[in-house]
């Protein structure tokens, strides 16, 4: 059975401007349990909006989003999110951030500390438990955000250009870590990116969204061809060719 279904999803922002913005229009998309799907598209085509709708942060203007067959109405710990700019709680330490969700679920102090520590070690931040986010580099902050989201063990992981603000080396390391995490503990992942190579390396399927108003333009299978650099480049080129048509439209 499909894990996530977008059916005729539409989002219009009324905003302060006189003419409303149709961010996405009539998106249909189905994601299987434990599938890793990447989403690429021109800037402003509604990729973030799509994730926020699934997260339950925004109200739909039309259509329906179902998770496990049930319509999404509000946010919930079954859908974890990682933002491009981390969105850590600056007044909480690394440990405080990572165990926040566990505390919200009513878990006792000793137990949540142990679990949080496990995730902190997993993202290689042992020794920084009592440090405030402000004193960490961007890459380290994104690791904290990842640990904070994973600690609640969500079924679905929403990632909105999570490595977009990081330098190339850090991005590469975090990509590998994410893949390792995903292979060890399967989750359904929706991963928005501007980097088509990243889409190929990480995902099993790449969804290309059209220029605004966003719709699904094409889906490209990226489950194979990750073995060597040449294959990755070839696949990336294939996505680029589709994407380029949309980029010139914006």
């Amino acid at each position: 059975m499909s894990k996530i279904e977008f059916a005729g999803v539409r989002k219009v922002f009324q905003g302060d401007t006189p003419n409303p913005v149709v961010a996405i229009d009539n998106i249909d998309l189905t994601v299987r349990q434990d599938e890793f799907v990447s989403i690429v598209g021109p800037s402003g085509c509604g990729k973030s909006t799509l994730l926020y709708l699934l997260g339950g942060f925004l109200d739909l203007s039309g259509g329906e989003i179902r998770v496990d067959g049930r319509a999404v109405t509000e946010p919930g710990p079954d859908r974890g999110i990682v933002f491009q700019h981390f969105a850590l709680f600056p007044w909480k330490t690394v440990l405080g951030n990572v165990e926040y969700g566990l505390a919200e679920q009513g878990m006792g102090k000793a137990e949540r500390r142990e679990i949080a520590q496990g995730y902190i070690d997993m993202v290689k931040l042992g020794g920084f438990e009592d440090t405030f986010p402000n004193r960490l580099s961007g890459g380290m902050q994104q690791r904290v955000a990842l640990a904070r989201t994973l600690a609640c063990d969500p079924d679905i992981l929403l990632m909105d250009e999570p490595f977009g603000a990081l330098d190339a080396q850090t991005r590469h390391i975090l990509q590998e870590e994410l893949l390792e995490i995903w292979s060890r503990r399967k989750k359904t992942v929706l991963f928005v990116t501007h980097d088509v190579r990243e889409a190929v390396i990480l995902a099993e399927r790449c969804v290309v969204v059209t220029a605004r108003p966003g719709r699904v333009k094409t889906e490209i299978d990226t489950s194979s061809g990750k073995a060597d650099g040449a294959a990755i480049e070839k696949k990336a080129e294939e996505i680029w060719d589709v994407l380029r048509e949309e980029l010139v439209r914006t």
């Binding site: 509000e74 999110i81 933002f83 969105a87 007044w91």
Partner: peptide, 29 residues
Amino acid sequence: VEPQLIWSARSLGTSSTAILWKIVLPAAL
């Protein structure tokens, strides 16, 4: 307060009322 802070907390299990004192208050401090 950045909406993404609120959304993070919401998706970590905080109710929309509790957001007021768990996120908005410290963020506005």
